[in-house]
Computed example of a mutant assay.
Amino acid sequence: MMSPLVARLLLLVCLVLPLYGVEKCTGNDAEKPNCTRHSEGGRSAYLNNMYGSCIQGPAGTPGRDGNPGANGIPGTPGIPGRDGLKGEKGECISEIFEEPWRPNYKQCAWNSLNYGIDLGKVADCTFTKMRTDSTLRVLFSGSLRLKCKSACCQRWYFTFNGAECAAPLPIESIIYLDQGSPELNSTINIHRTSSVEGMCEGVKAGLVDVAVWVGTCADYPRGDASTGWNSVSRIIIEELPK
């Protein structure tokens, strides 16, 4: 690469040498054919035209970017768009917000109920049902006994406000006895703790009278029944989500 000093010397040579080949005109010599008159401005133009192809010096330092220009004038608003096509009718969705389920149960208990009836209500327990679409689970636990000298059958069952469960089916338990002890001229007399249990649907919300009854079996004679002898009997009621 050429140094700045050498470049300047070459530029000076390009400017000075042509002066020796040009005759200076003075006075009447201006009419001579080989005489060229130069003014101060004409001399610069002459040199630029004749020797503009001299070696170019090194490029200067690039200038800095100018300041950003001011924002232009805002454009005019565009033409409003047209309405789109009508959409299809949406589905109607209804949301149902329910309260969280809370346990609801009750227990009624008796010590030595000793109820000896053969037909009728044995015990009852009042329960407050919170929802109509819920299910009631019921349990009776206690001592049951049946005796007779010939075949007999007794039935223990639940009612809800005086009616047996219809959905899905009645809640019941039976004891059947074929015969007694002829050789001793007496009957078998065994008391056993037993249970009557099930679930019932379709009971409306509100106050419900839950009761245990004793009755006869179909097509069989009744015997001598006993409920809750010498032990604790209880009814447990629980409301369950459907």
Rank of each mutant, 00 (worst) to 15 (best):
G202R: 09
Q179C: 11
S195D: 13
H191V: 05
N161E: 03
P170Y: 14
D209G: 04
I188G: 09
S150C: 02
G198F: 13
V212C: 03
L169Q: 14
A167N: 08
H191S: 09
R131C: 01
R131E: 00
K129C: 00
T135H: 03
C153T: 12
I171K: 05
C125A: 01
L144V: 14
S150K: 06
D133C: 05
C152W: 05
T128P: 03
V203Y: 06
S181M: 14
E197W: 15
C148F: 11
Q154C: 05
L146V: 07
A167W: 07
G198P: 14
D209E: 06
V196E: 07
V196H: 04
D178Q: 04
L177W: 00
S195W: 09
A163K: 02
Y176M: 08
T132N: 06
R137V: 06
K204H: 03
S186E: 15
A167D: 11
G206N: 11
G206V: 01
L146D: 02
E172S: 12
G206R: 02
R155T: 10
V210P: 01
R155Q: 13
V138L: 10
Q179D: 14
C152N: 10
R145N: 09
C125D: 00
P182G: 02
N189A: 07
I188S: 10
A205W: 04
C153N: 14
C165M: 12
F127P: 01
T159G: 05
D178N: 11
F160Y: 04
P168N: 08
N185V: 08
G202N: 08
R145T: 10
D133T: 10
F160H: 01
D133S: 03
A167Y: 08
E197M: 15
A163G: 03
F158A: 15
W156H: 07
R192G: 11
T193R: 15
G198Y: 14
